[in-house]
């Protein structure tokens, strides 16, 4: 059975609620980044780079049994941590659920600052790109 995006997000919120300060939060994100399953090298192409990030972020999406599996990588470790969190919520989900997913949990885990347009780390671009993949695959399903 698929765990819903909302349940995964609540899980992440629980995990982050254990941290007392930014340092623990960031250390956790850095560790998540280190654990991120690496994207296959053949997909680390320029066309898979998400624009709008100061660091490079590659995302690859594949459809398996009506669910999308995302893999990603970045040359910056904090960015890797952020994309790891996003992938954890969106990967192995149905395209429709990804399209409709709310991403307000980012705010709740204390990463609101990464949503600001000036941040240039492209969290907004990352969410947009993952949802775009979902839209593309949803069209295929129809």
């Amino acid at each position: 059975m698929i765990v819903s995006i909302e349940d995964i997000q609540n899980e992440i919120i629980d995990e982050f609620s254990m941290f007392e300060d930014w340092e623990e939060r960031y250390q956790y994100m850095i560790d998540l980044g280190k654990d991120l399953p690496l994207i296959d090298d053949q997909y680390k192409t320029d066309s898979n780079i998400i624009k709008g990030c100061q660091s490079k972020v590659w995302v690859h999406a594949e459809m398996k049994d009506d669910q999308i599996e995302f893999t990603a990588d970045s040359d910056a470790i904090i960015t890797k941590g952020i994309i790891a969190i996003l992938i954890r919520t969106f990967s192995n989900q149905h395209p429709k659920d990804i399209i409709n997913a709310d991403t307000g949990f980012i705010d709740e885990i204390g990463l609101k600052e990464h949503l600001s347009a000036t941040r240039a780390n492209g969290l907004v671009s990352m969410i947009k790109q993952l949802k775009l993949y979902a839209v593309a695959y949803q069209t295929q399903l129809k």
Binding site: E23, Y26, Q54, S55, D75, A76, I77, I78, T79, A120
Partner: peptide, 21 residues
């Protein structure tokens, strides 16, 4: 071995404003 963006992000948390990129 460290991306400048990562360093800039941590420095900001410590109140230090630098430019990265």
């Amino acid at each position: 071995g460290v991306h400048p963006y990562d360093v800039g992000t941590i420095l900001d948390k410590l109140g230090v404003a630098v430019r990265t990129g």
